[in-house]
Amino acid sequence: MSTMSTRSAWRALHYSAKRRAFQPFTPYRCFSCANRAQDQKTDNDRMTHFGFTNVPESEKESRVGAVFSSVAASYDRMNDLMSLGIHRLWKDHFVRSLNPGSCLPAMTADQRGWNILDIAGGTGDIAFRMLDHATNVNHDMETRVTISDINADMLAEGRKRSLDTPYYNTSRLDFVEANAEHMPHIPDSSVDLYTVVFGIRNFTDKQAALNEAYRVLKPGGVFACMEFSKVDNPVLDGIYKRWNFSAIPLIGQVVAGDRDSYQYLVESIERFPSQEEFRGMIQKAGFMIPGQGFENLTGGIAAIHKGIKPIAKA
C-alpha cells in the first residue's frame, strides 16, 4: 500500500495550508490536489468546517480525501481499537435491521432483488454484510450492491477485500468512484436502499447529498444512515469525550503513525449535528420518517437514521 506516500502527501498539504498565508507566491504542487490548491483563492468566500478549523468549501473534499487515503490500509484495525470492537456489532445490527434481500418470490421483474447503493462504503464493510445477509438469510441471489466512494484508495482497499468474498467479479457487486452530492451516472428512482455508514459527516454539503439520495431512490425506497451522534447520558458523555480526544489520536499515532487524521476524525464527530437536527435535515429533503426517526446505539455514541421516500399518489 502507498501508505507512506499518501501520508507524506497529507503532511505536505497540511503544512501548506498552515503556511500559505506567509508564502502566497510559492506555487505548491501536490500530486492529488494540485488544482484545488491553485484555484482556492477564488473560492475563499464560502467556508465550511474541517474538524474544528474552517476551510474553503473547495478544499474540504481534498482534505477529507487525504485523511481517508492515509487511513485506508489500517482502517479496520483502527476501527477495532477505537471502538473496542463495538463497530462490528453496530454494523451487524444495522444490516440485520434493514433485512436486505427478499425472501418472497418476485411478482414482477422489478421486484427481483434489491438495488442497493452503499455510499462512502469504500472498504465494503457494509456491502459484504448486506450481500451475505441477502444470500444466507433471505436466499436472495439477485440483490446487488453498488459501492460508491469519493476516495480511490478506499475503493482499492474494498476491491482487494472483495477477492475473498464470493461476490468478486459478479454482477452483484460494483465499485464506483463518485461524489455523493452529485451522481449524474445514477438515474432517478432506480435505487431500493441507499446506505451511508460513518460517511455523511465528511460530506461538504450534507443537504445536497440528502437531496441527491432522494432523487435516486425509488418511491418507497429507504435512506438509511449510521453515524456518530450525541450521547444523552452526561456521565457516559464525559467518558466518551475523554476517550475521543485523548485516546483516539494517541492510538492513531501509535498504530497508524498518523495523529492528525485521527484528530480530524474526532473533531468531525464532535461537529456532526445531533439526532434531532439530522432528522430535520432528512425530512427537509422530502423523506418520511418512521416513528421517532432514529435509533440510538450504545447510549447515542452512534445513531441509525432512516427515511422513506413517499410514493406518488396516482
Binding site: C103, L104, D192, L193, G220, V222, P290, K306, I308
Partner: peptide
C-alpha cells in the same frame, strides 16, 4: 410475520424495503 408485512407493502404499491416504515 414479516412475510405478511412485505406482502402488504407490495399490495399497497410499496417496495419490499418499505417495511422499514414500521420500526417495530
Amino acid at each position: 410475520t414479516a412475510t405478511a408485512l412485505t406482502l402488504g407493502a407490495r399490495d399497497a404499491g410499496f417496495l419490499d424495503v418499505s417495511v422499514q416504515l414500521l420500526p417495530r
